[in-house]
Structures are given as structure tokens and as C-alpha cells.
Design a protein around this nucleic acid. Sequence first.
RNA 1: GCGCCAUUGGUGAAGGGGUUAACACGGCGGAUUGUGGUUCCGUUAUGCAUCGGUUCGAAUCCGAUAUGGCGCCCCA
Length: 423
Amino acid sequence: MQKPKGTYDMFGKDSETYLYFNKIVESLMDKYNYKYFKTPTFELSEVFHSGVGETTDIVSKETYDFVDRGGRNITLRPEGTAGLARCLIENKLYAESLPLKAWYLGSMFRYERPQAGRNREFTQFGVEAYGIDDPSIDAEVISILVNLFKMIGLTGIKVNINSVGDKESRENYRNALVEYFKPNINDLCEDCKVRFEKNPLRMLDCKIDGESEIMKNAPIITDYLTEESKKHFELVQKYLSDMNIDFDVNPRIVRGLDYYTNTVFEVEADIKGSQNVLGAGGRYNNLIQNLGGPSVPGVGFAVGVDRLFLALKEKEIDLREEKTLDIYAFATSENEKDYLISLVNTLRLNGFDVDMDYTSRNMKNNFSRADKLDAKFIIIIGEDEIKNEYVTIKDNKTKEGFKISLNEMIDFLDKKLEGYNEN
RNA sequence: GCGCCAUUGGUGAAGGGGUUAACACGGCGGAUUGUGGUUCCGUUAUGCAUCGGUUCGAAUCCGAUAUGGCGCCCCA
């Protein structure tokens, strides 16, 4: 038995990191007053086809599609935005007071060739703000991303921003690019020739020709923005500066998904490997309309959580909450086991984190097990303890031993643990 | 979808055709102990990703498959 290609099992330190990361995200979202949304992991296929765009590879050849038992065309979500947009339309949330600020965290699915930082089932954390087409929200969304990295202590990140303009700007620019490259197309790489036909904007991203003279002198989108788009982009930059957020304007970045308009951005980390873009996003003012809803603008980003963890690992950042066991309890022989079980149950009901010996190990093994589990206190139950109604409690740090009557046990432990937390 | 590389126990690994698959950590058991983290002893892969092939003989050479990694396409 083997897990499917491109999936992973998460446990041990990694799952501790994951749980702690969730907590950080939740508290971060509270700071910005964004609300958690949980939408389905799969949607009717058309949600992604009309939402993300037919032409992007993600939808045209990387989705997990299947027909369910009722004959419906279903797609496992390859990204989070389209489903959230569908949720907004279906529940008419645009009728409530705007902006609607939402966040999500969950699995996404893309049928791709896996490598480090790229899986077929992967986790994204995303943020979206709908209803207000104001550059201040673009800037806020970017600031969330920057703040997230700050909160988890990840350094060496770089924010690149650009504007792909509105529909009109983009059409003008596309024509200019085609015009510019047409005479020289034969000098470019094979991939670029394909992009020339399919999506000329992507040519600027080319790994092979990217640094060549012809690319450097290519027209840049900023010169083709309409007055309105230009002003929007300038204000985004101003607000970012007002928040003291460092960024670079990079006219070469274009997003892969069709729904973006105006602001686009990505955040890259200085880590090895080609999967160094940790998060990316932008504004999408036509998405809701494309999905059959009213004209509602939106802006947001998604972070690749697996990639983020990879970066943490490379930088040796241990993002975990310290979790230690309050009590490890054991009995000196099999005869006291039933008593032990009942005592442990009582302790747990009183709010202590307790583990116990299930196999009646010898005493030495029990002590080393208590150490391994990082227990703060050890409780020992023997014949004498039962007969005289007390417990032997050992402080595992100071090695001090106490004989405490059953009645006083809870109070004693409460007080001791309080002292522990203060230290 | 394409190209290149890799895969040995619970983990890190050595071994690159010759019979018992090294070493370390971890796990389990024991010695001693109504009070331990040290030490000592024992044990822990009939098997080297899977399936075929070559050979007297394969973890070792060859092929296919699977999975992982690097790069590309694409993208978070």
C-alpha cells in the first residue's frame, strides 16, 4: 500500500507546526477583521471553467475531474478563489455591508508532476476582500501577507508588485507586444513561440530568453495602462510606502489565472529550488460577473503553506507551540491497574494533560518514559498508596517527592502547575 | 506532459557480482532498584522499492513499473 503520487502524510513535528500555524493565522485574521469561510473541497466543474478561465493550464489540463454517481461534472478545487466567489453569489453576501473580508485554509488539488514544494494535494491559506475597488484594500491585503511572514519569523522575503491594468489596458499592451516580437520571433526559444500564440504576456517571464536584449527592450505594461488603472497602481504604491512596506515594482510579473485585473503581486523567498514563490495574488474585478453575479470587485492572495513550511525548514525555524505533558502516572504492579485507570480519568476530567503506563513496565522504564514524554509530574500508585489513600507525586524537574492525600491531590497539582507556568 | 538523477532496517547510513548486509541512533527485553535519567548485557532487515532478465551466483549488471528529487512546461 502506498499513498498516491504527490500526496503526503503529516505527523510528528510537522503536524505540530501545522496546528500552530493555524493558530497564528487565526489571530492574524482577527487583527484585520477577516472572517473564516469553509467552502466545499469540490465544486461543479463550471465554477472553475468560467471563474479561473478556460485557457489557463490549471483548468485545462491540471484539474481532478470526475462524474459523480448522479452524473454531475465535479472538479476538486485547484484554487480557493472561484469557490469563494460562488459562495458569495449563491448566498447573496454582496447585499450585506461591504467590504466582505474572508479567509480560508485548506487542501487544493492539481494534477502536476510533483517535486519539493509542489504536490498534487497541497494546502493554501488565502484572503479575499470583496466589494470595494479602492487601492487601500489592495495595500491592506499585501500588508497581511508581509505581516504573516513577520509573525512566523521568516526573513529574506521580497514583495514584487505590478499592474496588469483593466481589460482595455491589457488588450492594448498585448497588441503592442505582438507587434514588437513579430519580426524577431524566430530568434526566440521554442516555448516563447508557443507563448507568442497563446499568451504573449508570459514571454517576459521566460527562463531562457528572459535576460536577453530583446526582452529587456520589450514594451512594458505600465506604459499602456489607462489613466484610471495608472492612478490605482500609484495609490497602491503610496499606501504601501505609508505602511513602511518594502516592495519592488516588477513589470514582468503576470499572474497565471485569467481573473486578475490591475494589481498583481507575488512574494518570493531566498530559498533554493524553483518553487520560491510563497504567495501571490491580486485584484479581480470581473470574477463575480464572470460567474454570473453582479459587478463586485475583489482582491486577495493565496499562500502555499507547504512551500512556506519548506522555507521554514531550510531556515531552521522551529514553528511549534511548546506542549508538555502535565502528568505521567504508573502503578507499581498489575494489581493497581484498575485503580490507576480510574485515577487518571479523574485527573483528566479536572483539566490535566495526563498519560499513563498501559503495559506495567518496570519502574526504571516508567521513569525514562516519563522523561521521554516530557512530563512535569509523575504519579506513582502502589499497594501502600491505595491502602492509606494517598498518592506519591514526584516533581520531574527538582526530583522532589511528595505524599499527598487524595483529597488534596487536585489542589496540590493545580498550585504546582501554576508555579511551573510562572517560571 | 518532457529531460536527468536517486531508492538498502523505525531513523541516519556503509557495502558497486561470491555465501553471516558494517557502524550509529532509536525500539524492545534483562541485570540492579519503593524510586529513574549513567552503565552493562541481549535482541531488533531470511532481506536491499516492485516485477522480470543476464549469471554457477545479484543489494551490486540490464529492462520495465512505482515513488521521490532536480530542471522545464505551468504555478501557490
